[in-house]
Computed example of a mutant assay.
Amino acid sequence: MKKRVGVLALQGAFREHRQVLEQLGCDVVEVRKTCDLDGIQGLIIPGGESTTIGKLLIVDEMGEKIKELGAKDMPIFGTCAGMILLSKTIVDSEQYSLGLMDTIVERNAFGRQVESFETDLQVPALGVNPLRAVFIRAPYLREVAPNVGILAEYNGKIVFARQGNLLASAFHPELTSDHRVHQYFINMIDEH
């Protein structure tokens, strides 16, 4: 049976996530209103502008509904801005966050847009072949609680992590042809 996966479609790179999920056989729901969260088995919060997405999550209490679903063990995957929004603490910021992951995140940790880059990451959870990762104004996890598993680091900075049903990446897996990160997330949905 097809997985029904939501992609938060308020702002940011949601179309690319949708395309990857569809290629992997999922039924994709573009989440624009709180009622769009009904009946999904997992949710991706895409990259974009975390401050803007955070403000939009307050409307219609969508953020509260996402927090409820996360607390009920629904898998949620945040990429870039999504990683920021999942974290309990955002360094030097009072912006809205879902606060679901026991992490401290630093925004724009690798520099501005012009300093965006691609690199190969070793991600043992995805196999022996390196993962091509695209970093665009990327954050990183400055600190993680003991219950958070570190999946990958870049130059000593945590860029990919999992806490139970929650997954967060500083990079954009939707921008490469390697779909192992999305498949990993789909496998998390199978587990739950």
Rank of each mutant, 00 (worst) to 15 (best):
D102R: 04
D102Q: 08
T103A: 13
I104V: 15
R107D: 08
N108C: 01
N108F: 02
G111S: 07
R112H: 11
Q113D: 11
Q113Y: 06
Q113A: 10
V114W: 00
V114T: 11
E115G: 09
S116K: 07
S116A: 14
F117M: 11
F117G: 12
E118G: 10
E118P: 05
T119G: 07
D120A: 13
D120V: 09
D120I: 04
L121N: 07
Q122G: 02
V123E: 08
A125F: 09
L126N: 11
L126K: 06
G127V: 01
V128A: 15
N129T: 15
N129S: 13
P130C: 09
L131W: 03
L131P: 02
R132L: 11
A133C: 12
V134C: 09
V134F: 00
V134H: 04
F135Y: 09
F135P: 08
I136N: 04
I136Q: 06
A138I: 00
A138M: 00
L141C: 10
L141Y: 02
L141M: 15
R142M: 11
R142G: 08
A145L: 06
P146V: 07
P146M: 08
N147L: 02
N147Y: 01
V148G: 08
G149M: 14
G149I: 12
G149T: 15
I150G: 05
I150M: 05
L151V: 02
A152N: 10
E153W: 06
E153R: 07
Y154R: 07
N155L: 15
G156S: 13
G156D: 08
G156I: 04
K157M: 10
K157T: 03
K157G: 11
K157W: 00
I158Q: 11
V159Y: 01
V159N: 05
F160D: 01
F160W: 02
F160L: 06
F160N: 03
A161S: 06
A161V: 04
A161M: 06
R162G: 07
Q163Y: 07
Q163N: 12
Q163I: 12
Q163M: 10
G164N: 13
G164Q: 13
N165F: 00
N165E: 06
L167S: 10
S169H: 04
S169P: 03
A170R: 00
F171H: 02
H172E: 05
P173W: 00
